[in-house]
């Protein structure tokens, strides 16, 4: 019964499918995607070589990826399912902007590198990551609450500094969104130093906000870290119950 569906699916197509989905071709394609990412980055640095070196390289990559996409459609057991699957759409997005030749959309070439996520189709990656994702999903609510709390704090800090600084530095603290930039940069401890308070009141306020806020903003990180540790302990206990002896 099952064979009815696949009865045309034999011979050349099947062989090609196995080759394309096999580890060798997949590995080569991943390398090519990486190489094309490197070329894309370097192109913006060495603009003088754009036409002599980078454009031909780009066309070559495009040709390879187009051929690969067509082959994947040709060999897929269920063509419709492949075209509308996540990776099918990503593959199409990767070649579409260049194929339709809209000059302004050249930057959309960046979509090509979404294909690098294909690497996660490898089963060992899936096995390694899925418990981690499960653990992260467990703390969704706590995380959301913390994010709301942090946003509120950022908002209050921005409003506060706006009151103190708007008269002295109207160009930098002229509006609350501008002040929010200062708040985020300070509270994540980045501190670019392009915007800083100058009035005594603003300085004292900054000190207070930094003391409370840096800890507050770090709580989500701590939560994630602890949940990952918990997940690992649980896994280890489970493994020992199953009598698996590994990791000494």
């Amino acid at each position: 019964m099952l064979n009815d569906v696949n009865d045309e699916y034999t011979g050349l197509r099947k062989k090609l499918y196995e080759i394309i989905e096999g580890p060798v071709v997949s590995g080569i394609i991943q390398l090519l995607i990486l190489a094309s990412a490197v070329a894309f980055v370097l192109e913006t640095e060495f603009t003088e070589y754009k036409e002599s070196i980078f454009d031909p390289i780009d066309w070559t990559f495009l040709a390879i990826f187009t051929v690969e996409y067509l082959l994947r459609i040709y060999t897929a057991p269920d063509r419709k399912a492949f075209i509308f699957s996540f990776f099918g759409i990503v593959d199409l997005l990767a070649i579409l902007p260049a194929l339709v030749l809209i000059p302004g959309f050249q930057i959309l070439r960046v979509l090509r590198f979404l294909r690098i996520f294909r690497i996660f189709k490898a089963t060992r990656f899936v096995l390694a990551v899925d418990r981690m994702i499960e653990a992260l999903a467990e703390v969704k609510r706590e995380l959301l609450a913390l994010v709301i709390l942090c946003s509120l704090f950022v908002y209050l800090a921005a409003c506060g500094i706006y009151v103190f600084e708007k008269d002295v530095q109207p160009d930098k603290f002229g509006s609350i969104p501008d002040a929010m930039w200062w708040a985020i940069v300070s509270l994540t401890t980045i501190g670019y130093g392009d915007v800083y308070p100058m009035t005594p009141g603003g300085k004292i306020f900054t000190a207070l906000v930094a003391l409370v806020g840096v800890g507050l903003i770090a709580i989500p990180s701590g939560l994630l870290a602890s949940v990952l540790t918990e997940a690992r302990v649980e896994e280890k206990l489970q493994d020992e119950e199953n009598g698996e002896e590994d990791e000494k």
Binding site: S221, A225, L228, T229
Partner: peptide, 18 residues
Amino acid sequence: AIIGHLIGLACMIGIILS
């Protein structure tokens, strides 16, 4: 900055710390 805090610091620290 925020994603860096969450993924970069938390996940890496979590995995190493464990």
